[in-house]
Amino acid sequence: MSISRRKSSLWRACLATLVLAVVGGFLFNWLMPQGVGFIPPEVAKPLWKAIAPAQAKELKEQGAVFLDAREAGDYGKARLRGALKLPAGEIDKLYRFLEPTLKQAPALVVYGQSTSRFPAAYLAQHLKRQGYEKVYVLEGCLDTLRGQGFDIQEIKRQGASS
């Protein structure tokens, strides 16, 4: 067999492997109960409403409670001043401690978004299902809020250089 023919058959086999992975993956994902959708349901069919930073500030003045849906480590580094920690992955563990405060709040504003993750959407969806009426997701991530008049609390660790 010539080198060029062998090379082309090698690439064909590589392509076949990729096609099989795509077809197999999507079929399995579609047929099995544990399959995931293309887009998370809290983003594809949101029960919450997005809110612009300016409107969120108005809600804060009216007593809205801000919730940080990011992971605890991120909350430990920087957060909106006064925001409560409720990571999307720890709702079951932490919700009961915050429930009395959340029930009394006129509105809930959730934040936490990055390139690949949207924990704020997940938490907001969960809260809507719990029966909270006014649940909003703050547009943008913590970095984009810096220049918009929000008071961001940076937590410096002991021993860290300034």
Binding site: T17, L18, L20, A21, V36, T115, S116, R117, F118
Partner: peptide, 25 residues
């Protein structure tokens, strides 16, 4: 996959499914 924060949100699930199947194949 999302922890790496490299892919846009809409691509995370599809890419992870294909990657897992590519590995097993």
């Amino acid at each position: 996959v999302a922890t790496y924060d490299l892919l846009p949100l809409w691509a995370v699930n599809s890419a992870s499914v294909v990657l897992a199947w590519l590995e097993i194949l």
